[in-house]
Amino acid sequence: MANDTQTESTVPGSARERLLEAAEALIYAGGIHATGVDAIVKQSGTARKSFYTHFESKDALVAAALERRDERWMNWFIAGTQQRGKTARKRLLGMFDVLREWFESADFHGCAFLNAAGEIASADDPIRIVARGHKERLLAFVRTQCDEFAAESGMEGRRAARLSRQWLVLLDGAIAVALVSGESDAALDAQSMARTVLEAESVSEADASISRATNASSSKNKPSKRPPSRRTAT
């Protein structure tokens, strides 16, 4: 007991935070199933009893560690995106520059949430729920930028929703390709595709505007179909 207390007191931070930090680092680098509780406890510098004090199971620890990573990663991604430009178009395309910086870092091992979801079969598992929540949160942020792009370009709101879903596919696709290939330029390839998508949306919106204007003009010039009045002068 005395030794456990002494060991924990020599490492800064609470035991719970150290367990979360160690779990996140080890699981992100090596995977959930390949990382045991003993390895997490050892790296955290805590006593094994601290693990049972703060978490009911390894899965609970993993889910909590992923929630912690979600908060930090989203804050980083949002801040990086906001710095990429004053227009929504620049920020949307700048997301891929943010990703490229991440891909070039020494500790890049792909998306922790896609990795975790790939290891957990049940959609109702707490770990999968956290992973799904992260993607929903990322999509929501992307949607805010797509809504602003729609306002800037005059695009219909319903098309902004579709654009945000396409953008998430491009972001996750770039992350997956960078992980497998080891090439950070996967972000630039995705950015090029994203630019094409925006250009196509702009052309489609221009065509839609012309169509609406033509229909409005035709309706204005179309003769009335109202039957002539049968009233006679008196």
Rank of each mutant, 00 (worst) to 15 (best):
L19N: 04
V62P: 01
H54S: 01
R143K: 14
S202I: 08
T7M: 13
A117G: 07
R18L: 08
Q191K: 15
D147E: 11
I40E: 11
G173D: 14
H109S: 13
A63R: 00
E101D: 14
R18V: 08
A112F: 00
I127M: 05
E136K: 13
D107W: 06
A79L: 03
S153V: 12
A178L: 09
R159M: 13
R158V: 12
Q6C: 09
G133M: 03
A63Y: 01
S211N: 12
V142N: 02
E152W: 12
T10C: 04
D4Q: 04
S50F: 04
S204D: 15
L20A: 01
Y52T: 13
F51T: 00
D124S: 13
F103H: 06
N115G: 04
L188H: 05
W102T: 12
G154D: 09
I175P: 02
S57T: 01
T5G: 15
F149W: 15
S202L: 13
L19K: 08
A79M: 02
N221R: 15
R84S: 09
D70V: 00
I78G: 01
E104I: 11
N215H: 07
I129K: 14
E152Y: 13
R162Q: 11
S218D: 02
R137Y: 05
Q82M: 04
D4S: 12
R212Y: 08
G80K: 00
F149K: 02
K58I: 11
R230A: 11
L93H: 03
S204I: 03
D125C: 03
V180D: 10
M155Y: 09
A178N: 01
E21T: 15
A60T: 06
F113R: 10
L168F: 03
L163C: 02
S14L: 08
W76S: 03
A178P: 04
E104Q: 15
S44R: 06
S14Y: 10
T232F: 04
F108M: 00
G118A: 07
K220T: 14
N221S: 14
I78W: 01
A117K: 11
A15H: 06
F108C: 05
E183K: 05
V98M: 00
I40M: 13
G173F: 12
V37D: 09
F149I: 01
D107F: 01
Q6F: 15
S184D: 11
V142L: 08
L188M: 11
E201F: 06
L179P: 00
Q6G: 04
A121R: 09
V203L: 15
Q166T: 09
S217H: 10
L168Y: 00
A233Y: 11
I127C: 01
A213G: 14
E152I: 13
R68S: 10
L114N: 05
D97C: 05
K42R: 14
P228R: 12
L93M: 08
S217K: 11
Q145F: 04
I32S: 06
S217V: 12
W73P: 00
H134I: 04
L99V: 07
